[in-house]
Amino acid sequence: MLDARLRTDMYAWMSLTRAFDDQMVAMWKSGRGLGGTFSQRGHEAISVGVGMAMGPDDVATPMHRDLGTYLVRGMTPERIFGNLLGRATGPSQGRDANLHGLGDLSLGIIGFISHIPQALPTALGVAMTFRHRLEPRVAVTFIGDGGTTAGAFHEVLNMAAVWAAPLVVVVENNQYAYSTPLNQQMASADIVAKAEAHGVLGTRVDGNDVEAVYLAARDSIERARAGGGPVLIQADTMRMLGHAIHDGAEYVPEGLLADWEQRDPLRLTRNRLVEQRTATPEALDSLDRAAASRIQQAVAAAEAAPFPDGDSLTDGVYA
């Protein structure tokens, strides 16, 4: 069994991710946000589990549902809220919207690529750089079920296998690509089989079970690091709110959401930690309160932060 401290930490990071998300959704629904944004609800175990399995020198290309990965790797809630609110203090300094543009190479994070399948070749390039330099580092990329239906998915799995690139591809299957359900996207939802057809090792994991995600990611990353070649992890979950904040997701059957709600990643982890006497309910409540307070502090700082100066419009077009 994993170390008790590590398992409690997983809960703490998921709690922070959920607190951020609850606050963000409430703000945006009440008109206190800027533009659109994307809820994380349902994805916390994947983004936290993979983020915690990565080494400090590994590099991630997270997407817009991987808030936990950004947080675990050290991007502060202040900076992320700053970005969401178009402030000069966000990693994009007001240049990129919401959860896009959260790039910081000092944290091993490449900013979200809105055309999600493009994250794959980018991560392959990172992995090939590590291979080229004989550095024991791994590139970890995140896409959704929808990302697997584009050409780059197959191009990159093919090349990564040919070159045995140290690449881990995390497919967050949340059942919907915007409004289109899985069965209308692909005749075979066995994404692992598609990876294996390209010569990439594939593994499937319960995406709501943070410990299972962590173990699958850790094993995959260490395999890739040791020169064993690329691995694809299919992590199944459910997108519990709409595609973006404006989307009521009326196209999702209510029963489906109710079923998945029973398996909410935070509830699942909390119950397990309590049942196994790893943590008391009071200790976990305390973590939840600390997370909520941390987020309040971040929002206050971000709302007080300056907007970028309009005169800086053309700064940074070129390096």
Binding site: P121, T122, A123, G125, T129, A139, M159, V162
Partner: peptide, 23 residues
């Protein structure tokens, strides 16, 4: 001098990943 498969989208994107890492 890396020979690539026929996949311009992805080997060009790969170059971007390499460039971000300093190559």
């Amino acid at each position: 001098v890396l020979n690539t498969p026929i996949a311009e989208l992805s080997f060009t994107g790969m170059a971007t990943g390499m460039a971000l890492m300093g190559l």
